[in-house]
Simulated scan of single mutants.
Amino acid sequence: MSLEKHVAEWAPGEVASEDPIAPGPARALAGVLGERDLRGDGPPVSVLPLLWHWLYFLDWPAHEELGPDGHPLEGHFLPPIPDRRRMFAGGRVRVEEPLEIGRTARRVSTLADAAVKHGRSGETLFVTVRHEIHQGGRPRLVEEQDFAYRSGESGQRRMPAEPKSGPPDRGTEPWWSLTAADPVLLFRFSALTANAHRIHYDAPYARTVEGYPGLVVHGPLLAVLLAGRAEAAGQPATAMRYRLRSPVFAGEPFAVTGGPGDNEVELSVRTAPAEVNATATVVRS
């Protein structure tokens, strides 16, 4: 059955939730990433960095409600297609005002779009979920997240065997940092974001079931690192659009590169000089 038929009458309504934006999750992520100011070692910080709202408004389904891959079997914005496999493809976010730590916020989530596209590998359902966050009676942040869904696949997606041309080098990029994500970092980020997908912490599963060469670095973690690189220069960001292109694996060196522009910063994650794994454009005030 075509994916269009599965989602022809799928129209989930909006969902509203509240979160106190407690300092604990932000301090925990600061510890994971080595951000001293937010960890409590430096001057007090009262607002969340760009994309750190992903630590909040989390959903923790019961253990028996998870599928064999660790993802929930059911969910308000999960499309009703069989043998569902999900990929976080990217998104856009606009900041009206930064979210304040320690002050309750309200989020309203809606289905913005659901469209089936046909490619060489078959049908893919692209779903966009929109979030609007208010705090103190004022709009603070508007976000759209894009997810790609496939149906009926066995999960044996073998990665290309060709070796990469070597680790990324600095080249002429004025902003450049080289790092790697180890399994401990991935486990901690999974816990902080309520992400139970086994490809991030269960290496035997990632290899034998999903066909990856190792643990997969979270797409949202790459996006957080891109946003942090743009804000490191001291100018707060007001908007970001990003796209996740290909996976990065645990232990694999990757560079976060880019350079300042007038108002926009173009950034990328690379695992080799010619291997672009993620891209982002950040607008700064």
Rank of each mutant, 00 (worst) to 15 (best):
Arg120Glu: 15
Pro204Asp: 13
Leu141Thr: 03
Tyr242Gln: 03
Ala115Leu: 06
Met240Thr: 01
Val216Ile: 02
Thr193Asn: 11
Val224Leu: 05
Val129Ser: 11
Ala223Cys: 07
Ala191Asn: 15
Ser154Phe: 08
Val142Thr: 14
Ala191Arg: 15
Gly137Arg: 06
Phe126Asp: 06
Thr172Ile: 05
Leu221Ile: 04
Arg120Tyr: 09
Arg158Pro: 04
Leu178Asp: 10
Leu178Asn: 11
Gly171Ser: 12
Ala115Pro: 08
His118Phe: 09
Ile199His: 13
Thr124Cys: 07
Gly152Lys: 08
Gly219Ala: 04
Gln145Ile: 06
Ala114Thr: 07
Thr124His: 04
Ser151Ala: 14
His131Lys: 05
Lys164Val: 04
Thr128Met: 07
His134Asp: 14
Pro174Trp: 07
Arg170Ser: 10
Lys164Asn: 07
Leu222Arg: 06
Leu111Pro: 03
His118Glu: 13
Gly137Gln: 10
Ala194Asn: 08
Ala206Tyr: 08
Thr193Trp: 12
Tyr149Val: 04
Pro236Gln: 04
His197Pro: 14
Ala239Asn: 03
Pro160His: 04
Gly166Leu: 02
Arg243Pro: 05
Gly171Arg: 15
Arg207Met: 15
Ala114Met: 02
Ala227Met: 00
Val129Leu: 14
Pro204Cys: 10
Ser154Glu: 14
Gln235Ser: 07
Ala114Ser: 11
Ala232Gly: 01
Arg120Asn: 13
His118Gly: 04
Glu173Gln: 14
Ile133Leu: 08
Thr179Tyr: 01
Glu132Ala: 15
His197Glu: 13
Thr110Lys: 10
Arg188His: 15
Gly234Thr: 00
Thr110Leu: 07
Val142Lys: 09
Pro160Arg: 04
Gly211Arg: 09
Leu222Cys: 03
Ala232Asp: 06
Arg130Ile: 03
Tyr205Asn: 08
Glu153Asp: 06
Val116His: 11
Leu221Thr: 04
Ala114Ile: 06
Met159Cys: 03
Thr110Cys: 04
Pro160Tyr: 02
Ala232Tyr: 03
His197Met: 14
Leu215Glu: 01
Pro163Glu: 01
Arg170Leu: 07
Ser154Thr: 15
Thr172Asn: 14
Ala232Phe: 02
Leu221Asn: 02
Thr124Asp: 09
Gly152Ser: 08
Pro183Phe: 13
Arg207Thr: 13
Arg138Glu: 14
Trp176His: 15
Ala230His: 02
Asn195Thr: 11
Gly228Trp: 01
Ser151Thr: 06
Val142Glu: 12
Tyr212Asp: 09
Arg130His: 06
Val184Gln: 13
Gly228Leu: 03
Gly136Phe: 08
His134Thr: 14
Thr172Gly: 09
Pro160Glu: 00
Ala227Glu: 03
Gly122Cys: 13
Gly214Glu: 05
Ser121Cys: 13
Tyr205Met: 08
Ala148His: 12
Leu178Ala: 12
Gly155Pro: 01
Arg120Phe: 07
